[in-house]
């Protein structure tokens, strides 16, 4: 970025290639990420604000911003907000992710 005062996500007016119109149907896990944000940002919970989600995405940095898919960016950011608020710890999350991966491996055998 030539201008440090311009966020990487703030792209209005920059040169870019043609619009590629291919589309994909969202996978169930992507829809669940969307659902989690709808729930966590609702009036009763107010736990992950949309602006917190966006800030987390903006702070992923240029590499991750382009390399991750849309809902990968979302879950990465939602998770960061929840860690920051102490809803769970990194250790709890890491152990649970390992369990999830082990369960999936078991399901495939």
């Amino acid at each position: 970025m030539s201008d440090p005062g311009r966020g990487y996500h703030d792209m209005g007016g920059l040169p870019a290639g043609p619009v590629e119109r291919g589309e994909h149907d969202y996978a169930l896990w992507e829809k669940r990420v969307d659902a989690l944000l709808v729930l966590l940002s609702d009036k009763t919970r107010d736990l992950v604000r949309v602006d917190e989600l966006r800030r987390g995405i903006e702070q992923l940095g240029p590499g991750a911003y382009d390399e991750l898919s849309y809902y990968e960016r979302w879950i990465a950011s939602i998770t960061g907000v929840l860690l920051g608020k102490g809803v769970f710890t990194s250790d709890e999350l890491g152990r649970r992710m390992a369990e999830v991966e082990a369960r999936a491996a078991g399901d495939r055998t």
Binding site: G5, R6, G7, D10, G13, D51, R54, R55, E58
Partner: peptide, 11 residues
């Protein structure tokens, strides 16, 4: 051009 989460586009 403050750092942070800004919703006023650069352009």
């Amino acid at each position: 051009h403050p750092p942070g989460h800004i919703r006023t586009p650069y352009y």
